[in-house]
């Protein structure tokens, strides 16, 4: 290695390695040096320590090459050469993009849920975006075949409207109706989309003696976003709906993010004529990664591992994210104080 090559190689070393080298040459005072002085010190002592310096550089370069060998798609990201840890950033962004189109094959858990509905109530608790709608649609199809009414309820009018459009597309508008607090289209259709409050009110009326064919032939009640059961204001309506749900109808509760689906399933089993089957997993169909973006535009991984840590106690921040966030906090603290 020529002196120039050596100098360039040193400039590319992470600070942590530079400091280690500096310390082995100049002793503890190196710990207080900045990058420029460190390089100066190392260069000055390089002749006497050439083996050690070169070994460090070579190991580092080998590591870099190994990381770079991992194929990185996604254009701009891989050509980035900012100081810090470009390799980690590359790993974070690796594989970004559109997957190969694949024919639709229902997941095992989706089939499991649909089939379990033949035998009893079902709670599906899987991550957001997994495909709970497929279960709802498939179960609706089966109930339709048996000439049974299906009610789909959701907490939000917006969601009811989206589902109405979706179900109209799948089953044909003549088979789908919608009832919300202020809207009523085709209210005698075999598939009814409604807000949970409306269903509860229908159940009140039926219990009060009013005859409602829709409830007599009710075969399936789908309760989407059923974690609303824990909503401080409206949760009670979900409970009432479940308690008053006619015994011949099957219940299908769909939800992401709840901590105690077992408890809910045990409750349903205790009050309903058929046992409740719980379909549950935590596997995200599209893996999720976390990044940290500093206000200056610098992106780094948020965690030390590229995949999401499995629990808060195992979540270790990426050193760069930690450093930048600490810096941010100090900066804003300072401006807050002076401003």
């Amino acid at each position: 290695m020529t002196r120039d090559e050596l100098e360039r190689a040193l400039a590319n070393l992470p600070f942590r390695l530079l400091r280690r080298l500096g310390r082995s040459i100049a002793g503890p005072p190196a710990l207080r040096m900045g990058k420029r002085r460190l390089m100066h010190t190392i260069m000055a002592g390089a002749e006497a320590n050439i083996a050690r310096v070169e070994a460090t550089i070579r190991t580092h370069q080998a590591e870099q090459q190994a990381l770079a060998a991992v194929p990185a798609s996604g254009g701009g990201a891989s050509s980035e050469h900012k100081p810090g840890k470009p390799a980690d950033l590359r790993a974070l962004l690796e594989g970004i993009g559109v997957p190969e189109p694949r024919p639709f094959v229902p997941d095992d858990w989706q089939m499991e849920a649909v089939e379990a509905l033949e035998r009893g109530d079902v709670i599906v608790s899987v991550p957001t975006g997994s495909g709970k709608t497929y279960v709802a649609v498939e179960a609706t199809r089966r109930a339709m075949h048996e000439d049974r009414t299906v009610v789909y309820t959701s907490p939000l009018k917006a969601l009811s409207n989206t589902k109405y459009t979706e179900f109209c597309k799948i089953f044909g508008p003549e088979f789908v109706g919608i009832i919300t607090g202020d809207r009523r289209d085709n209210p005698t259709a075999p598939i009814l989309i409604m807000t949970t409050e409306i269903l509860r009110n229908l159940l009140y009326d039926a219990a009060g003696g009013e005859i409602d064919v829709r409830l007599d032939t009710l075969g399936l009640v789908i309760i989407d976003e059923s974690q609303f059961l824990g909503d401080s204001e409206r949760g009670v309506v979900w409970e009432e709906t479940i308690i008053f749900c006619p015994s011949q109808a099957r219940l299908l509760l769909l939800s992401a993010s709840i901590g105690n689906p077992h408890e809910l399933a045990a409750w349903l089993t205790s009050i309903r004529p058929t046992p409740c089957h719980l379909v549950r997993h935590q596997h995200r169909s599209v893996p999720l990664r976390a990044g940290y973006l500093h206000p200056n535009g610098k992106l780094t991984p948020l965690f030390r591992t590229v995949t999401m840590p499995p629990s808060p106690s195992q979540a270790v921040l990426h050193p760069e994210a930690k450093r930048l966030f600490t810096m941010f906090e100090e900066d804003t603290l300072y401006t807050r104080r002076s401003g």
Partner: peptide, 9 residues
């Protein structure tokens, strides 16, 4: 998407 991202800023 083959991967999703949660970015904290």
């Amino acid at each position: 998407d083959s991967v999703g991202f949660a970015i904290v800023t």
